[in-house]
Amino acid sequence: MPSAEFTAAADSVQKLPKTPSDDELLELYGLYKQATVGDNNTDRPGAFNFKAKYKWDAWDKLKGKSQEEAEQEYIALVQTLSDKYN
């Protein structure tokens, strides 16, 4: 179950006045999935589905990281992005 702090961070990232870079968005996605689902056990998307493949890779590289650790890293990243874009 995600913490209240994690849920608040996930909500606040949606309200940033400027969209984070693609790399930042992928990092957010990977940490969010690792924190909420755990290790990626899905098949990698096909070669021509670039967006899905990048998202899958961002999540898969976190394999083995605990959900609690991913949650804390996600919260810290959202704070960094909030400082940068607000």
Rank of each mutant, 00 (worst) to 15 (best):
K65Q: 09
K63M: 13
Y32F: 13
L25I: 12
F6C: 05
Y32Q: 04
A47M: 15
W56Q: 02
P17G: 07
K65I: 14
K61V: 13
G64W: 08
A9N: 03
G38M: 02
K55P: 04
A76G: 06
Y29H: 04
T42Q: 08
V37S: 04
Q72T: 14
T19F: 15
D43C: 10
Y29P: 03
D43R: 10
L77W: 04
Q67M: 14
Q67N: 05
S3M: 10
F50T: 12
A35P: 01
L81Y: 03
G46W: 07
Y29M: 05
D23A: 07
Q14K: 13
V13P: 01
V78N: 02
A47Q: 08
A9G: 06
S3I: 08
Q34A: 00
W59I: 07
Q67V: 11
L31Y: 00
A58V: 10
D22L: 14
W56F: 10
Q14E: 15
T7P: 07
S82L: 12
G38N: 03
S12H: 07
K33I: 03
P20E: 06
A10Q: 05
S12E: 14
E68R: 06
K61F: 05
Y29K: 00
Q79C: 13
Y85K: 07
F6L: 09
N49I: 12
Q67T: 11
T7S: 15
Y85Q: 05
E24R: 00
K33C: 05
Q34I: 04
T19E: 15
K53V: 15
N49R: 05
A8C: 05
N40F: 02
L77K: 00
Q14A: 14
D83Q: 08
D23K: 00
L81E: 03
K84D: 14
N41A: 15
E27G: 04
W56M: 04
L62Q: 02
A9C: 10
W56E: 03
P17N: 05
A47E: 14
L28M: 11
T7F: 15
K63I: 14
G46A: 12
F50Y: 08
E73N: 05
G46T: 11
Y32W: 13
N41T: 15
V37N: 02
Q72F: 08
S82P: 04
T36V: 10
Y54T: 12
K51C: 12
L28S: 01
Y32R: 02
D22M: 11
L16N: 07
S12R: 11
E68I: 15
L62H: 03
D83H: 08
S82T: 12
K51M: 13
E73M: 07
F50M: 13
P2R: 01
L16H: 01
A70T: 02
A35D: 01
T36C: 05
D39Q: 05
D11M: 15
S66N: 03
D60I: 10
E71F: 06
G64V: 13
A4R: 09
E73R: 00
T36E: 08
D43S: 14
A4D: 15
T42N: 06
K84E: 06
E73D: 13
L77A: 04
K53M: 12
P45F: 14
L31C: 03
K51E: 13
G30E: 02
Y29T: 06
S82G: 09
A4K: 09
T42M: 08
K65M: 12
K63W: 10
N49W: 11
Y32C: 01
A4F: 11
K18W: 12
K61Q: 04
S21F: 13
N40R: 04
F50S: 14
E5Q: 13
L25D: 06
S82F: 06
Y29G: 00
